[in-house]
Each structure stands twice: as structure tokens, then as C-alpha cells.
Design a protein around this nucleic acid. Structure first.
Length: 571
DNA sequence: GCCGTTTTCGGCCCGACTGTTTTCAGTCG
């Protein structure tokens, strides 16, 4: 029996119980048991006493044991017999939870979207206690685009929206402080909505500006302190604004950054000290509310170091405080090793990119335009790559305090060969190999291609190793653990591509790479100057994997980097 | 259903908003 199946079954039981209007604490006990099992790093066979895990007791353990022994759960089976399957997806309709659905089922025999729609249209729903005309209309409206609207949007779709709102809020003199919060601030790959915390004395003015200056599709809520809107974008984007007083800003930001589990853990800690955390501050034992200038001060109040938003996830981060100092931060980054210029499909010249990199405060970088195979990207022939040298040398001559290295992002061709001859590669400072074609090949073929690249003495790094696009495509499905083995054996770098489209390698593989001591380079893959900003996102994503800074190539000094790139050539 | 330096009962994170009510339940984050 697979651990994931057990976790899903426990969650399913909770969901079905919710639809039975079961005691909410009992429901959450099943969810907690599922979460506890997930958080435990051991495999099933390594766990002797399942009830020893905090959050798993007699009841949930018996479900788990039954699943392990018989492969099914009688508890779930019984629930499935009582609760109609069609009710489950209806839980996703805004405004409908377990209790309301249970009532709809019991009183009106509503079992799925179809019967719900009919009941609403017949005016039956408004007759129930606790429901009325408005609820009925709302349900009908929600049913219209039920299933068509994306539930969670990928980070690359949200990032431009966040930038736009940042600009709006920064332009308002009435706004004292503001920040994005929620899962976007934690750099989640996908988010349900975007949260903003805004400190202001002028609620009215800020609210007006939001309504006036953003393209709003729908206003979901417009209370005193909460404004909730859906923006008119290619995909509709939900945005919540929380308007708070300056003194509440730090605790509000913490509260709405989450995660939920992190907040629960923090509240438990507060409670054990006789205090109470809310978005308005920390209530002390004597009932007074203490507020904080910054999130740092808030954590310090509990004797904690600043915990970066990116690692505020399961709550377990509070057990790893001594590792926080090893986490990579943007300050540690001195280089960017993957970018494009007008020589291939980039928007800016070598010199323009170089100056932008210097402005970032970096000390070196590598220009890595595409190779000849990638015709759609105007990939460089050996001849053009030779010519590009002149641009790079000229830049280096003019800017002696900075160093641009000559590189390439060379394609690994569908037939498994490389796009440039070794003689060509030998002449370059830094060679990236990557796959941009024939994604549907068998895993064996893909791995054979990657093996050729990784065993080539002149290749330094494999870029975006899985080829995935966040929330859109899975990539070419390599055997990543094996690739990590090979990288370790051959002393090669694997990339964390920082573009929000990619974030590749993903967290679980980054952790695996770290265990094997494989160096990781966080690169923007910028095709224009403004995309150099992705470094911040890449660094934060690396934090989520708890990557240690020593392993990150672009924290290395120029000397250390040069020693690394020379090593391969001398083989 | 789970848990325990408030330890086998009684609480479980906390508060806003909406729509329903006429003081509150349900939902949501």
C-alpha cells in the first residue's frame, strides 16, 4: 500500500464527513492525521508504531492499518454509501460548505450540480431556513462557470499582476506601507488568489483607487478592511486587499502570509506562553495588545529569528531554526550564468546586458545564446559564435571590474548528439547543454541524450533539467534521481532555472541534489534586461528547498568559479 | 477524533464578511 493513497483516503474520509455535517473537530482530526503522515519522512515500512505519530490516534490508525492490510477502508466505503459522489465537487462552489450542502441533500435531495441547478431554478432553495433569494441567485451564477474557471493560477501568470498592483500602491501617497502576502509571497508555484496588505489611514481613498484604477471583472467583497475583487485578465485573477492601521501591519502581513499550518504552529506557541496571536497584534496575558514595527520584531517577541516567508509551510520550520542562517539570500548572489542577447532570441545587446548585470552588483556573468539547431531562436552557428566574441571582449576591456564569460546554451539534439563539436566547446568559458526538442521520446532515449551531454568533458551544466512549464506541461520526463547521480559522478552543475515559467529543478529534486552534493546554479535565463529580476524568485524558490548557500554556484567568487570551469578542460 | 506541566474531560487558531437574521451561522482564509 502506497503512503500517498493512505493520505488521500484520510482526506477523502474528512471530506465525506464534512458533507455529513459531522463534528468539525472530528473532520479536522482526519485532515491532521493525513498531514502528520505526509510530514513524516519515513516510508510506511519504516514506521513501527503508527499511533506514536502526533495527530494519529486510535481511530485514524485503525483506518491506516486496515488500508495496509486489506487495501481498502470500511469507514470510507460506508461513507461513500451514504453521501452521493456528485456532492463532492460542489464543495468548491464559493459560499457552499459541508453544512449547507448536507442540508441541501437532506431537505431537497440534491446530489450533484444538475439537481442543484434544477432546485435553484424551481425556487426551492430559497425556501430552506438559512437560504434565501440572494443565495439562490449566487449559486446559479456560480454554477454557470463551474468547472471552467482555473482553480489555481501558475506563478508566472500572477507575477505581472503583482507588479502592476505594486506600482499602483506605490503611487498612492495615502499608502504608508504595503506588501503582497499569501502563497505568492511564499513563492508557491500556483496560487488561488493574490493577497495584499496595505497600511493606511485613508481607507476610503485607497479603496476608491483600487476600484478606479484596476480592471475589475467582479467585486466579491467590499468591507471596511477587506476588499476582494476579480481582475479582468486573460484568466480572471482574484485579489484580496486587507487595509490595516500602520501598527497592525507586521502582524497582519504575517497572518495573511501564512501558511495556515505555520500560523497554527505560531498560535500554539503563543498560547503556551499565555498569549494570543491575531492579525491585529499579540494579546498579552494581561489582555493588552502588543503591536510590532516589523515582522522581525514580531518573531523576536517569541524569541525566534526571522523566518523567511518561503519556508513558512508545514510548521516544521520552527524545528529547523538553526538551519536558517545557511539559507541562500539574494545578497549572496554575485553572478548569473544563463542569459540571451540579440545574437539569438534576446531583446538586448551584449553590452546592454553587461551593464544591467553590473547594476545588479554582480561581479561576473555568462552570455549563453542558443546554438544553431534552435532555428526559431536564431541559434548561433560556430561562425557567429566566433564573431560574438568581439562584443564580449570589447565589453570586458571597457569594464575591467566585471567579467563577462563566453558561453553557449547548446542543444542536445533529438538523435542524442550535441550541437557543437568538442573543438568549438573547448574554446568557450562555460557550456550549458539543454533539451528543447522531441519531448515525447521514451525516457531511455531522453536519458541517453542527457548522458551524452553530462559525460562530455566540456559541458559544465544541464539547464532546466526536466523542461517543465509550471502549471502547464510536465516536460520530457527524465529519471531525475539518475541524472543527479550522473551529475555527482561527473562533477557537473544542475540548474535551478529561476524563470517563473520553469522553476526547474523543482523543490523535491533540489533537495535530492543537495543530498548528493551536486552544485546548483540559480539562473534567470533572461531574454531581456527586466527578466534579470527573476533571480529574486529563484533564490526564494531555493529557500523553499532549504538549499545551503555553499552549494550555489553563483555565490562563488570569480576565482572559485574560474577554477571550476578550468578543471573540466584539463581532463 | 486527538491530546495532555490546565493530563481522561474539555478544548481544539482566530476573526471578517455575507446573508441570513434581529443576534447569528456558515464560510473563508
Amino acid at each position: 500500500m502506497n503512503k500517498k493513497i493512505i493520505i488521500r483516503t484520510l482526506e477523502k474520509i474528512a471530506l465525506y464527513m464534512e458533507l455529513q455535517a459531522e463534528n468539525p473537530f472530528k473532520v479536522s482530526a482526519f485532515r491532521k492525521a493525513a498531514a502528520a503522515l505526509e510530514a513524516d519522512e519515513r516510508s510506511l515500512s519504516e514506521i513501527d508504531d503508527i499511533t506514536a505519530i502526533k495527530g494519529i490516534g486510535k481511530g485514524t490508525a485503525s483506518v491506516i492499518i486496515e488500508l495496509m492490510e486489506k487495501g481498502e477502508s470500511s469507514v470510507l466505503k460506508e461513507l461513500e454509501g451514504i453521501v452521493p459522489k456528485g456532492l463532492i465537487p460542489l464543495m468548491k462552489l464559493p459560499g457552499l460548505g459541508g453544512k449547507k450542502l448536507a442540508k441541501l441533500y437532506q431537505e431537497l435531495n440534491i446530489v450533484d450540480a444538475e439537481t442543484l441547478k434544477n432546485a435553484c431554478e424551481a425556487g426551492k432553495v430559497r425556501e430552506l431556513a438559512g437560504f434565501a433569494a440572494k443565495t439562490e441567485e449566487k449559486i446559479l451564477k456560480e454554477l454557470e462557470n463551474f468547472g471552467t474557471r482555473a482553480e489555481r493560477l501558475p506563478i508566472w501568470q500572477l507575477e505581472p499582476v503583482v507588479l502592476e498592483i505594486n506600482e499602483l500602491l506605490a503611487s498612492l501617497p495615502e499608502v504608508e506601507l504595503f506588501s503582497v502576502a499569501g502563497s505568492f509571497r511564499r513563492v508557491a508555484e500556483t496560487s488561488k488568489d493574490i493577497d495584499f496588505i496595505v497600511a493606511t489611514k485613508e481607507y476610503e481613498v485607497v479603496r476608491e483607487a483600487i476600484f478606479k484604477r484596476l480592471a475589475i471583472l467582479e467585486t466579491v467583497a467590499a468591507g471596511d478592511t477587506k476588499v476582494s475583487v476579480v481582475l479582468d485578465r486573460e484568466e480572471p485573477v482574484s485579489v484580496d486587499f486587507r487595509l490595516v492601521k500602520r501598527e497592525e501591519y507586521a502582524t497582519a502581513l504575517h497572518h495573511f502570509t501564512g501558511s495556515k499550518d505555520h500560523n497554527v504552529r505560531m498560535r500554539q506557541l503563543a498560547k503556551s506562553l499565555g498569549k494570543k496571536i491575531s492579525e491585529y497584534g499579540v494579546e498579552q496575558e494581561d489582555g493588552t495588545i502588543e503591536t510590532f514595527e516589523t515582522e522581525e520584531a514580531f518573531f523576536a517577541h517569541f524569541n525566534l529569528p526571522f523566518i523567511p516567508p518561503t519556508v513558512r509551510e508545514s510548521g516544521k520550520e520552527l524545528d529547523r531554526l538553526d538551519e536558517l542562517q545557511d539559507l541562500i539570500t539574494l545578497d549572496n548572489i554575485v553572478a548569473d550564468l544563463h542569459m540571451h542577447t540579440t545574437w539569438s532570441d534576446g531583446a538586448h545587446s551584449v553590452s546592454e546586458m553587461g551593464h544591467a548585470l553590473m547594476e545588479k552588483g554582480y561581479s561576473y556573468a555568462v552570455i549563453t545564446d542558443h546554438s544553431q539547431y534552435l532555428k526559431v531562436a536564431n541559434g548561433l552557428t560556430p561562425e557567429r559564435l566566433e564573431l560574438q566574441k568581439l562584443d564580449i571582449y570589447a565589453f570586458n576591456k571597457a569594464n575591467p571590474d566585471f567579467r563577462l564569460y563566453r558561453g553557449t546554451e547548446m542543444d542536445i539534439l533529438p538523435d542524442g548528439t550535441l550541437d557543437f563539436e568538442d573543438d568549438m566547446l573547448k574554446d568557450l568559458d562555460f557550456v550549458i547543454a539543454s533539451i528543447h526538442s522531441s519531448f515525447t521520446q521514451s525516457q531511455d532515449k531522453i536519458m541517453a541524450r542527457l548522458k551524452t551531454a553530462i559525460e562530455n568533458p566540456y559541458v559544465h551544466m544541464i539547464a532546466h533539467p526536466t523542461g517543465r512549464i509550471v502549471g502547464q506541461r510536465g516536460g520530457y520526463d527524465p529519471d531525475v534521481p539518475l541524472l543527479i547521480e550522473w551529475a555527482a559522478e561527473n562533477g557537473k552543475i544542475l540548474e535551478l532555472n529561476a524563470s517563473p515559467y520553469r522553476l526547474d529543478l523543482s523543490i523535491e529534486y533540489l533537495q535530492l541534489a543537495m543530498e548528493k552534493n551536486v552544485p546548483i546554479a540559480i539562473n534567470t535565463d533572461a531574454h531581456a534586461i527586466d527578466q534579470l529580476r527573476y533571480m529574486d524568485m529563484g533564490v526564494k524558490y531555493a529557500q523553499k528547498a532549504w538549499l545551503k548557500k555553499e552549494l550555489i554556484v553563483n555565490t562563488w567568487s570569480r576565482e572559485k568559479f574560474e577554477a571550476f570551469i578550468k578543471k573540466n578542460k584539463e581532463k
